[in-house]
Write a protein that binds this DNA or RNA. Structure first.
Length: 545
RNA sequence: GCGGGUGUAGCUCAAUGGUAGAGCCAUAGCCUUCCAAGCUAAAGACGAGGGUUCGAUUCCCUUCACCCGCUCCA
């Protein structure tokens, strides 16, 4: 399937539009159309229903260490600025970058390190040339000096055996200590002075609280919904009777000022997340991590992403965040990605006690194998925590501890996009002359199909429209249905196929006589006669409601 | 943010320094008894801003968006 066909279908049928399209669009922002809003809502509802509403805390689910409770939250998009300082997002999302005019590469300002060196550039025919003092640079590596040797040799046009002729001076230090880059050789450059001045990249959307707000009132749109759950952990414990282990779920918008939004809705600047923060005893956290990883993977397969295009990828040890004991991505092979590449739908992370501790003590950094509060130059916490006690006291075991967190964090827009890609199907169906015609249909799981059924009068006479309208009205009380009496019935079927409607109900001449209608299946094209009074029950059964 | 490419109707494609054409889709009506049929009607576009020009969709500049490659990817 070519992605542009799906994009065209999404626009033609009203699933997705570019934001502010009449003004030329806005990079990284997308609007859901009349059908798209139904589809995405169904995805979110399915998630909420399966994870929260239908969860039975009285029985042990398959694969779980024990029973657990689930509850929900809906937090604000703008939160106290200190939330983002303690979570680490403030420091992490404020990057200074330098660009190389020659190699067209971009580097993180604080990651480019180098050292002064003096050498003699090889001239024409191997003759000695000009002597130069240059600050050669490289990205941080395990052995920075070796990397610098290579860069310097290449710059001066020397062989490996000439390495002794290089006169190094001083220590290796980041270029952020230099005021002037005119004698700096970029990591991938052939000439000196090609690096631009550092420029700030703010990956969080900044806004101002209050009409007269200045820089002191600066706040941020949340880059993830998770932090709202952590800062409300104590409120939830104190106001409901939940006991650890339990999970808090939240669905909501998040915002990231991505450098390169691309690939349709896959990387958007405004997007919606479906997140669970699951709190458990540290001794059980590894088991819970495995439970949630497997549970979330099977959710996607049950929703229709079964097959080779979906995979579970456990992160390597060196890929893990410093606080994590395990992270897995659920990934989908989107059609717009190069062959063999997968895009992340959801990450399941073992976050340890990092988050709750951060909001108690202040922003944490790794010191050896432990987490300690990051200090500023005065020896005080760089970002001060709330000081509130976010530990948990277990009445039964008489134990106080900081719960560990398992975080299944899913992208609602990415899941919706994956379902769209997966359901896009083309087959051939005979037209009225028996000639095979190409048919495009979206093979949605009926749970997420925007329209569950369409009702047609075969022709506009003999009382058929009236009966169809009556059936339509009855069904509409309990599901999204569509009425269509325009044009030939074959065209109406195709139109429903293209938006993924699982069933079409047609009132024909026989309906007037015996009260039965035809029920057509989207995938098999087969029709069965069903009594119109039994239609609702029949549909509910087939839709698994 | 950088480099390259592309912007004409919802889609696919024309033409033009002087009133921008067509097919499909979509809309309304007629006709039609089961898988995109037919007839009729009406509607619909030069991505945006500026400049040159008597006149710019066409030439120039800027900008925006999309595609590809870098970069980024908590």
């Amino acid at each position: 399937m070519e992605m542009d066909q799906l994009v065209a279908l999404c626009k033609r049928r009203g699933f997705l539009f570019q934001s502010s399209e009449i003004y030329g669009g806005l990079n990284g922002f997308w609007d859901y159309g009349p059908l798209g809003v139904l589809l995405k809502k169904n995805v979110k509802d399915a998630w909420w229903n399966d994870m929260v509403m239908s969860h039975n805390e009285m029985i042990v689910p398959k694969g779980a260490p024990q029973t657990y409770e689930m509850t929900g939250l809906d937090c604000t998009i703008i939160m106290h600025p200190q939330v983002w300082k303690c979570s680490g997002h403030y420091d992490l999302f404020h990057d200074y970058m330098v660009d190389c005019r020659e190699s067209k590469k971009r580097y993180r300002y604080d990651h480019v390190r180098g050292r002064w060196v003096t050498g003699t550039k090889r001239g024409e025919g191997g003759a000695p040339g000009q002597q130069m003092r240059v600050f050669v640079t490289t990205m941080e590596t395990e052995n920075t000096q070796t990397a610098l040797d290579e860069v310097a040799l290449k710059f001066f046009g020397l062989r490996k055996k000439d390495v002794e002729t290089l006169q190094w001076e001083g220590d290796i230090f980041p270029i952020s200590r230099l005021d002037d880059f005119s004698d700096v050789l970029g990591p991938d450059a052939k000439h000196v002075g090609t690096l631009t001045a550092p420029r700030e990249f703010n990956l969080m959307f900044k806004t101002v609280i209050g009409a007269l707000g200045g820089e002191d009132d600066a706040s941020f749109l949340r880059p993830e919904t998770a932090q709202g759950i952590f800062v409300n952990f104590k409120n939830v414990c104190d106001s409901t009777r939940v006991r650890v282990p339990f999970g808090i779920a939240q669905v909501g918008k998040s915002f990231r000022n991505e450098i390169t939004p691309r690939n349709f809705t896959f990387r958007s600047r405004e997007f919606e997340q479906m997140e669970i923060e699951f709190f458990c005893h540290p001794s059980q956290s590894a088991e819970w991590y495995r439970y949630w990883r497997d549970r979330r993977f099977s959710w996607y397969t049950e929703m229709g992403l079964a097959g080779e295009r979906l995979r579970l990828r456990e992160h390597d040890a060196d890929e893990l965040s410093h606080y994590s004991c395990g992270t897995a991505d659920i990934e989908y092979q989107f059609p717009f990605l190069p062959p063999g590449e997968f895009g992340e739908l959801e990450g399941i992370a073992h976050r340890g006690d990092f988050d709750l501790r951060s909001h108690m003590e202040g922003k944490l950094v790794k010191d050896g194998n432990t987490l300690v509060v990051e200090k500023n130059e005065h020896g005080q916490p760089k970002h001060r925590g709330s000081g509130k006690d976010l530990t948990y006291y277990d009445d039964l075991t008489k134990e106080r501890f900081t719960p560990h967190v398992i975080e299944p964090s899913a992208g609602a827009d990415r899941a919706t996009l994956a379902f769209l890609c997966e359901s896009y199907n083309v087959d051939t169906a005979p037209d009225e002359n028996g000639k095979p015609q190409e048919r495009v249909f979206l093979k949605f799981n009926p749970r997420i199909a925007p329209i569950k059924a369409a009702v047609f009068p075969l022709v506009k006479k003999d009382g058929m429209p009236e009966i169809a309208a009556e059936i339509y009205g009855e069904l509409k009380k309990s599901m999204s249905v569509f009425f269509d009496d325009k044009g030939a019935v074959g065209r109406r079927y195709r139109r429903q196929d293209e938006i993924g409607t699982p069933y079409c109900i047609t009132v024909d001449g026989q309906t007037v006589q015996d009260g039965t209608v035809t029920l057509r299946d989207r995938d098999t094209l087969k029709q069965e006669r069903v009594k119109k009074d039994e239609l609702l029950a029949e549909l509910n059964g087939r839709l698994g409601r």
